[in-house]
Nucleic acid binder design. Structure first.
Lengths: 126, 126
DNA sequence: ACGGTATATACCAAGTGTGGAATATACCAT
DNA sequence: ATGGTATATTCCACACTTGGTATATACCGT
């Protein structure tokens, strides 16, 4: 991955939050909307932008689009997210986002919500 | 420093090369021009941009402007530059730039070129 | 085929970054 | 005061990013 594209990806708060979430595993658009409290068009646009940068990729699962990191083990990305998480709330609610993600996954498990099948676990809540 | 500004700074090849050079110590514009083989206006503009981002600051020393990192110990910046240097020539000639910088400093020492006084050493070659 | 849900795209306006050419400013030496 | 060197700024054009609103597409269940 070109360094330039990585940094363009990281130079926006919403995008960093999305990358941070995807680092823990794939997610569909509706969950990203829910966690970020962002409307659908904005999320879609950011995802498209990051897809063009070569940071993420999306795959259709039934009616949902499930996004994932293109290079989940990319050391520079991982390292930067780590530092940003350590920076705490003052910068971005990254750890809080991770908790919300976990809560959503639990809810899905508990309520048997229909969701695309994804590496053993389900993804979507509605 | 806001993370956003750091990444905006890093998302351009010339800027990364400048930041990498300044990490080793302050430099004046003419040396940056020489090492990057870039014309004066472009260097000045990138420096201004990074000054607005809060990444660098410039101080006049006689007829020269000497630039330095605003937060030389910033861990995220240091870490990213380190990784980019390790990435090697394919991405950016960062290590080569460092060598050029050292060569210039030697040349100054040897030829007693006039330069702004800076933390003991001199800086400018002309 | 139809209506609903999830997601993407198109279009337009505003803001931001980037490049080139010309010009201005600051300082030095004489 | 003058001319030279180092650096910054201005202006203009162009590409990129971002936000809003509206619309289109894809898939599902019936």
């Amino acid at each position: 991955m070109e360094f330039k594209k990585l940094y363009k990806g990281l130079s926006d708060g919403h995008r960093v939050r999305i990358l941070n979430l995807l680092e823990d595993g794939p997610l569909c658009v509706c969950h990203l909307m829910e966690i970020l409290s962002l409307d659908q068009v904005k999320v879609s646009k950011q995802l498209r932008y990051m897809k063009e940068l070569g940071l993420v990729d999306g795959e259709r699962q039934a009616q949902w689009m499930v996004y994932r990191l293109l290079e989940p083990e990319h050391p520079l990305l991982a390292r930067n997210l780590e530092c940003l998480r350590e920076a705490g709330e003052a910068e971005l609610p990254l750890v809080e986002d991770q908790k919300k993600r976990a809560a959503i996954l639990e809810r899905i498990e508990r309520d048997q919500d229909p969701c695309p099948d994804l590496e053993g676990a389900t993804c979507c809540a509605r």
